[in-house]
Design a binder for these strands. Structure first.
Lengths: 339, 339
DNA sequence: TTGAAAGCGCTACCAG
DNA sequence: CTGGTAGCGCTTTCAA
């Protein structure tokens, strides 16, 4: 039995078993060249003392921590939670621990977290960036910290990156509305400084342009979503002489807020959302979405990271995953006949 | 500029600035008793060399890692994601990093994760347990690792615990159905070996008994949820001469699966679910749930942990949070008139 | 205000 | 097969 706050060390075990610490180390790490009899004696001492190897010391000596860091916007968001789980699974398959931090879309917080992780000497870092300048990571990369960007590309540095085809996905979603006869289509997106939000807006614009459709400024809102901004956005695009007959929502939170707003106001217009929602198929009508392959995004990011940790030497690579249209009913009807 | 894979140490900085390593340490840690002029010289060297303190070494020397571990069932589940976020926020306010691991309801995996975290010498551990015997943690507690259990109590050891009133919540939900006139009410719960599932079943039984209602065995299913088990559960409770007119679902996944099944089969019965769902208010009818205060659960667990880390000496404590009924329409109607 | 030396617990390296 | 020694990069302690 150990006393409170005191842990037995390898030396303690060694003394207890009458061997050298190095022999204990061999047993603890399953190294060869230990007589079974000796190993058994050491094992007994380990159990009797309740010894658990101190991986902090091990890390210091070996220079590898068998841990990676993941920085995302908010682990409480289902999208990032799913991504995080995929990363964790890959990490676990490499016997590696995962440290997670939420940046809340704050560049300073991202930087603080990234440097804190690097100070812990994580072997690598997966970042869903909020910052607009990642040169602060150059030193860490040079010092050997592997780096992968997911969901959004790095700014001002080169590194492996895995993205969703946000622009193409948005185009597909908006084209789907156009294909159903809509010509006045609104767009509600997040703050345009966010890469994915900007890309999706571009996709919206391109799909409209490709169909020869003009976009009125009152149809477009691009800002951090809240109940109030959603309410105003919808009011603006539905007011005036050219109200929209359909709306494209730029992410999962926006879709949910817009649905709630439309329901409250008892307004029924066609809607497509970017990102899937857990109960999207159970709403009436079902919500048509452009779904990202969230798990894949995380899995591939983690695979790329471990490939680098395995010594892969090539130049930075970029993987782009498609986004998939899932028609469920909320968009598959024509606009009301014009008076 | 550093070369690949080599990081400057305090000694390097010290040499560069012509001071002792201890002086660099003082500057890096904002300790007093350094002449501003000296400090400036050190700062310059730090920037020139791109030095970042190695917290692994710091940890080894100081014996505190400023990190905590969180073991839950699945970080991809919105319930645990929300809890995790609350824990992370408390940890961040203590300048502490969070390591997360998913046990997938596997006792061995829980144990492996917990011991891996302890080997890293996390300062404390928050566990949402899957195991049925936590004596393996006694040594770690004795060695000084703080321990808090959340959502489910520990088995065979004593430790701070924060729980939801699962039994009371289920009673409230079932009583609500009874209050709306239902007398034949089904129950679908998770594997009864899971603490929360067992408690919620007890609550169901007690509410039925309190109203003087018998429970037919065909009305009850208690197993790991899947599309198939849900389908069979519903078919059983709706078949025969005494079909249920309402059902109580034991957790968020079960509620979603049951809703999908009922929708597919075009069956409309009253329903109350345990755990809230993101779009519950937007379904038609809205889904009545018994909601847990997930964020509170995580926040209080983390607060209890840091209170222990701060030296709080009292005996293990148990906090029980209420679960709150949120009526939304799926349960607020009477059963069809009996023929 | 500054520095030198010891050592946290482990593993790498070399000797036996 | 086994053991000793050195040292990972930092902080602690004590001396100057």
């Amino acid at each position: 039995m150990t006393t409170h706050g005191t842990r037995p060390t390898m030396r303690d075990v060694a003394r207890h078993a009458n061997v050298a610490t190095k022999t204990v180390s061999r047993v603890v790490n399953d190294e060869p060249n230990v007589r079974p009899q000796t190993a058994a004696r050491v094992q007994r001492a380990i159990i009797e003392l309740g010894y658990l190897r101190n991986d902090s010391a091990r890390v210091l000596r070996r220079g590898q921590t068998a841990s990676i860091g993941l920085i995302l916007e908010n682990i409480g968001d289902p999208f990032y939670a799913a991504l995080s789980r995929a990363v964790e699974d890959v990490a676990a398959s490499h016997d590696t621990l995962l440290i997670t931090g939420s940046s809340d879309e704050d560049p300073d917080r991202e930087r603080t977290l990234a440097l804190a992780f690097c100070a812990r000497r994580v072997d690598g870092l997966i970042i869903i960036p909020a910052a607009h300048d990642h040169t602060y990571l150059q030193q860490e990369m040079a010092a050997g910290c592997a780096l992968v960007f997911a969901d959004r590309p790095p700014r001002l540095i080169g590194a492996d990156t895995v993205l969703t085809d946000n622009r193409g996905g948005a185009m597909t979603g908006v084209a789907h509305l156009i294909g159903n006869g809509h010509r006045r289509i609104g767009f509600i997106g997040d703050d345009p400084r966010i890469y994915t939000a900007a890309e999706r807006y571009q996709g919206y614009c391109e799909a409209m342009a490709a169909a020869g459709l003009r976009v009125a400024s009152s149809w477009v809102t691009r800002t951090a979503p809240s109940r109030q901004t959603m309410s105003e956005a919808l009011r603006r695009m539905l007011a005036g002489s050219t109200p929209v007959t359909a709306v494209f929502c730029g992410n999962n939170r926006i879709t949910v807020l817009a649905l709630r707003e439309l329901r409250t106001a008892r307004i029924s217009i066609a809607l497509v959302g970017f990102d899937d929602l857990e109960l999207a198929d159970l709403l009436e009508p079902g919500i048509t979405v452009v779904a990202q392959h969230t798990g894949e995004l995380g899995r591939i990011a983690a695979d790329m990271l471990f490939r680098r940790l395995g010594g892969y030497p090539g130049p930075p690579e970029r993987v782009v995953l498609p986004a998939t249209l899932v028609p469920r009913g909320s968009a598959e009807f024509p606009p009301p006949a014009d008076p």
